[in-house]
Design a protein around this nucleic acid. Structure first.
Lengths: 108, 108
DNA sequence: TATATTTGCAACCAATAGGTTTCTTAATTT
DNA sequence: AAATTAAGAAACCTATTGGTTGCAAATATA
């Protein structure tokens, strides 16, 4: 079962979990309180998130605190890079167009 | 079947299709040539991408050209925004730490 | 020491995903 | 007009997903 970040964030519950623990490390029980699914279902999500290294665990007695591995989120950002070039280009083109129009107006 | 962008980009073939047509509009047949799956399977991916508005169609005779709707990609960027704050913060904290260390050294 | 709490794991289930093959429709060539 | 080409739709199949319940292990508390 080769997991990757993109598959991990496909599920809305998992995105919500990520957003939750981004603020502070939390235990599975505490996380589960925020959803209408069982603790075990949350645990499964956490396992998937751990497998693709989006999340790290820290044991504290019998509790396990989960927190976000922010570096992994950057992988998505890295993938976006190729498209960012495109949309910035479009902006430049729009800028140039507006500039051209403005100059033509000024010439009058 | 409520599709969203995150589910759409979860599949690696779909991400490849997106990257392909980001460069130039392409027909399903032309796209399919780049993969080991049938044209019909590509068509299904294109339908999903169209449903969540990541892709737009332009009919030209009996051919249909598919191209990327770059604006929709920005939705992912928007979602990343909340985390970008976090990782920029971490950088700042590191900067401060390094600065503090440097000052201490200079004081000597 | 006995009991309660926190967690992960396994077995199971229904729905969905991603692929295939077959067929239809519409536009282009010959 | 007939044949070819491009594409979507439908039916089907298997693997995966996201959920459940029940159980076992480890730690903490009475």
């Amino acid at each position: 079962m080769r997991r990757d970040v993109f598959q991990a964030i496909a599920d809305p519950t998992r995105r919500a979990i990520i957003a939750l623990i981004a603020l502070q490390a939390m235990t599975p029980n505490a996380i589960a309180e925020n959803f209408d699914i069982t603790r075990q279902a949350v645990s499964k999500h956490l396992r998937i998130l751990t497998e693709c290294e989006l999340v790290i665990q820290k044991q504290k007695g019998r509790e396990i605190y989960y927190s976000l591995e922010i570096e992994k989120i950057k992988e998505i950002d890295k993938w976006l890079e190729q498209f960012r070039k495109i949309w910035e280009n479009r902006f430049d083109q729009l800028d140039n167009l507006l500039l051209t129009l403005k100059n033509k107006k000024d010439e009058k």
